[in-house]
Design a protein around this nucleic acid. Structure first.
Length: 500
RNA sequence: CGAGAUAUAGCGCAGUUGGUAGCGCGCCACGUUCGGGACGUGGAGGCCGGGCGUUCGAGUCGCCCUAUCUCGACCA
């Protein structure tokens, strides 16, 4: 990493040479692009307005897609009584090690006169767990909602924060507290629940590919990678620019596990009692990490037009107030024209930064299209158009600029997806021997290989190479073969990678 | 939770054998500039992470905290 920070340009140079230390590069980018910063609380993150604006766009779009598939929003408590956790054995085992626990409900002045202390008199009879996920509190609630098959299905989603006390955190990718949505559905039949699980997996895949411009692999987790309490965990897996995999979303088929644990039964059409079938699915602010690590380049962030807080920034180039006034007047019309076409635009005519500084700044922030207008353009009836994804510039007539920009935004959206897809293709290989695997895993990327289906082999590979099975892909080549490690039969190739 | 490192202005850093605090960026004012992170002049900004000790004297030496970062362990 370049260390000198003697000028603005020096700061930007720090973002180059990603290969050396990708984590550092990522961290710097998140902070410099004004997305988020570390907070005073260990492991927790402050999402800054620019970063939050992107998250809001993600939220809004996903929420629309949930509504379109028949879901409604609700909200459940932050605190979960400890006893709820002991009701589903594998669930508690999965989360016990990372739970924040509330033991008291009152502070008082320190008798020694130094600040406040926890009032020992105010101990809770039963400790409350800050939710790491909400299955238990929700199923405890659903019990009261469900008596008959006529009460089903329940298709609820909640937008919430959860806390998982991670030892080691990283902005957006793993924080002690994070924002997410969690859908929790209840169904009368196994088939319907499985259908729901896959439906939401597809919603996630569509969103991530079409809006975030990140290609995904849809798959199912191996038993050892399953969500605690699930019968099947489906996922979308993405590949980052440093060759590591990132799980971008999950959809769980929970069977009747939580219904049994919380005794949620219903009377079916034939008057028989049965336990309810359930699913849960979620994506989190981790998607922001995926967005950053998929598209960014040495000049900073690259945002897909569909999620950019502003899709276009306009930079005036002027010498004096009169020059700026003339440009302001012209640009006002352009801003209105763009807005009328549904394009979000920021006009930065501040006079305390020079054009070059603004160019660099908005590139760092990933604004998809930049327009620059100076005296020369005013005279010629032109405007300079620069695109973030290719860093190319052209000068075009300023008349009908909205139509031009609209096409450009579509093009950028597609182009960055294609770029990411090409990148993934170039880092996806098939191997047939364990030796070849060990060699390839060092280069990063997805490795398609045969596996005998046993947890032992999976654990051995993880132990020896730090690679995990990201998923068993749902689509693509399903030819049987022989496990690369043991030579035992394999149903199909699975995807290995080192992961976040 | 282990191992290493760091903590000095808003940010990034320097600070020699202990002698009372400095640079760059940013910020404020004025002027010249303005098509890829401009420059000059002047200015504001500090309990040197916290505590205890050694000393005539501590940013600097010692011990104890605390926080952060990197690497492990753990992990949606």
């Amino acid at each position: 990493m370049a260390k000198e920070t003697t000028s603005g340009a020096g700061q930007l140079k720090e973002l180059t040479s990603r290969g050396e230390n990708y984590s550092q590069w990522y961290n710097d980018l998140v902070i410099k692009a004004d997305l988020a910063e570390n907070s005073a609380v260990r492991g927790c993150m402050v999402i800054k307005p620019y970063g939050y604006a992107i998250w809001e766009k993600i939220q809004r779009q996903l929420d629309d897609m949930f509504k379109a598939t028949g879901h409604v929003n609700a909200y459940f408590p932050l605190f979960i009584p400890k006893s709820f956790f002991s009701k589903e054995a594998s669930h508690v085992e999965g989360f016990a090690k990372e739970c924040a626990v509330v033991t008291h409900y009152r502070l008082k002045n320190d008798p020694d006169g130094k600040g406040v202390i926890v009032d020992p008199e105010a101990r809770l009879e039963e400790e409350l767990i800050v939710r790491p996920t909400s299955e238990t509190i929700i199923w405890n609630t659903y019990k009261g909602w469900i008596q008959s098959h006529r009460d089903l299905p329940i298709l609820c989603n909640q937008w919430a924060n959860v806390v998982r006390w991670e030892m080691r955190t990283r902005l957006f990718l793993r924080t002690a507290e994070f924002l997410w949505q969690e859908g929790h559905t209840a169904h009368a039949t196994r088939e319907e629940a499985i259908e729901e699980t896959l439906k939401m997996l597809n919603v996630y895949a569509l969103f991530v590919e079409n809006y975030m411009a990140i290609p995904v692999v849809k798959g199912v987790k191996t038993p050892s990678e399953r969500f605690a309490g699930a019968l099947d965990t489906y996922c979308i897996e993405t590949l980052m620019q440093d060759g590591k995999a990132l799980q971008a979303g999950t959809s769980h088929f929970l069977g009747q596990n939580f219904a049994r644990a919380f005794d949620v039964q219903f009377l079916d059409r034939d008057g028989r009692r049965d336990y309810v079938w359930s699913t849960s699915w979620g994506v989190s602010t981790r998607l922001m990490g995926a967005l950053i690590m998929t598209h960014s380049d040495d000049n900073g962030l690259v945002l897909p037009p569909k999620l950019a807080p502003y899709q276009v920034v306009i930079v005036p180039i002027f010498r004096d107030d009169a020059g700026l006034a003339a440009i302001n007047e012209k640009v006002e019309g352009i801003v209105n024209e763009l807005k009328a076409s549904g394009i979000s635009v920021k006009y930065d005519n501040s006079d305390n930064k020079k054009p070059g500084w603004k160019f660099a700044e908005y590139e760092l922030k990933g604004v998809p299209v930049r327009l620059a207008m100076g005296a020369r353009d005013l005279e010629n009836g032109t405007i300079e158009v620069a695109r973030r994804d290719t860093l190319t510039k052209e000068t075009v007539p300023s008349a009908n600029i909205a139509a031009h920009v609209k096409n450009l935004l579509d093009d950028i959206q597609q182009n960055i997806y294609r770029k990411a897809l090409d990148y993934r293709a170039s880092y996806t290989v098939s191997v047939d021997t364990y030796d070849a695997f060990k060699q390839k895993i060092e280069e990063g990327g997805f490795i398609l290989a045969h596996w005998d289906g046993t947890a032992e082999t999976e654990a051995r590979i993880k132990e020896e190479t730090k690679a995990t099975i990201r998923c068993i892909p749902l689509e693509g080549d399903a030819t049987p073969g022989q496990c690369m490690v043991t030579g035992m039969p394999s149903k199909q190739r699975v995807i290995f990678a080192r992961a976040y």
